[in-house]
């Protein structure tokens, strides 16, 4: 599991980095914390010819409070540094979500952008090359077959980016940069339903920053995993609400890790907005989940458990909003 042969470049500015990436977009990859990329390179899921280091780029650093109260966070900010940032600490759900990522060791290396761009995961694919030889290639590694859900035409690997559900619920905006310019989009539009091209990042494009508006009301986050430390989640939920008289008048709930893209819930949220946060309303919202999940895989946890977990995640998020 050694690293495949590649070249390495350490540009001094963002423009230089984007130019390098743009010169050979298909065969170059950017490295920030490296915790995901190096892992995947060892398994030869990634075999870039050029690795471009983002380590010294000031443009990707910094946490700034904007005039409207929003936080603009550079994608290259280390998770550990964010946890020490006073502005981040004030948003306790966000701080909790960051703290739930992996271990302190990983958070001392990994970045916000790296977590949001985390490669999708599948236990037939995220293995060593030798291991994969036993199973044969799949959609992601160059065949028409999917081992996780036989027959599907689009890769169903899971999105385990722990921070995505809450940040989507909080209506974060992503700023993307490429040699061709910059663009902004809501974070929910950053992800796709395809486990291979799981973000909308174009060739040579980078996630530059996240802008998070101030929470209009309570925000909650919960991660369910096998154990508390160093684990990808089995399921996460992020929710943010605007409350009036103990009732949400605006609500966003996002489930993570169950599917290929973080799920911004629709029907359950409408149920709550119509019926409030009473027990019956929550039960109705849970039932309304049925149509939202789509096909679930047995990756890491059985599909039936994922279905059950989705109900629990939703319920617990709503209960916490009610209590807040």
């Amino acid at each position: 599991m050694l690293l495949p042969a590649h070249d390495y470049a350490q540009p001094g500015s963002l423009d230089e980095a984007l130019a390098l990436l743009n010169a050979s977009p298909a065969t170059s990859r950017a490295i920030a914390g490296g915790t995901d990329l190096i892992y995947n390179m060892r398994g030869r899921l990634e075999q870039p010819e050029l690795v471009v280091s983002l380590r010294r780029l000031p443009e990707l650093q910094g946490v700034r409070q904007l005039s409207d109260g929003s936080l603009r966070i550079g994608a290259g900010e280390r998770l550990a540094d964010l946890l020490r940032n006073e502005a981040v600490q004030r948003w306790s759900a966000l701080a909790g979500a960051i703290r739930s990522v992996a271990s302190s060791h990983v958070r001392n290396m990994a970045t916000l952008g790296g977590n949001l761009c985390l490669q999708t995961r599948c236990w037939y694919t995220n293995q060593s090359e030798e291991w994969r030889a036993g199973r044969g290639p799949c959609l992601k590694t160059g065949s028409p077959d999917c081992h996780a859900l036989p027959g599907v035409e689009v890769c169903v690997a899971l999105n385990n980016a722990d921070l995505a559900p809450l940040l989507i619920a909080m209506q974060a905006t992503a700023t993307l940069a490429s040699a061709g310019g910059r663009r902004e989009l809501p974070l929910e539009d950053f992800y796709t339903d395809d486990g291979i091209a799981h973000t909308v990042l174009g060739p040579g494009e980078l996630l530059l920053a996240l802008t998070i508006p101030p929470p209009p009301g309570p925000a909650v986050y919960w991660k369910h995993s096998s154990r508390t430390g160093l684990d990808f989640s089995w399921g996460t939920v992020g929710a943010s609400a605007t409350m009036a008289d103990g009732r949400p008048v605006a609500l966003r709930v996002v489930l993570g890790s169950l599917t290929t893209r973080p799920l911004l819930l629709d029907a359950p949220v409408r149920t709550i907005l119509e019926q409030g946060l009473g027990d019956d309303a929550i039960a109705a919202a849970q039932d309304a989940l049925r149509g939202e999940l789509g096909a679930l895989t047995n990756l890491y946890t059985p599909a039936a458990y994922k279905r059950e977990l989705a109900r629990i995640l939703l319920k617990r998020a709503l209960l916490r909003l009610r209590e807040s």
Binding site: G34, T35, I38, A80, H105, V106, N108, M109
Partner: peptide, 19 residues
Amino acid sequence: TVHNASGEAVLSCLTPALE
């Protein structure tokens, strides 16, 4: 695990030497 200059724990297996 080793420490970076700030005395934080980092995983030396997951980071390229050139970095």
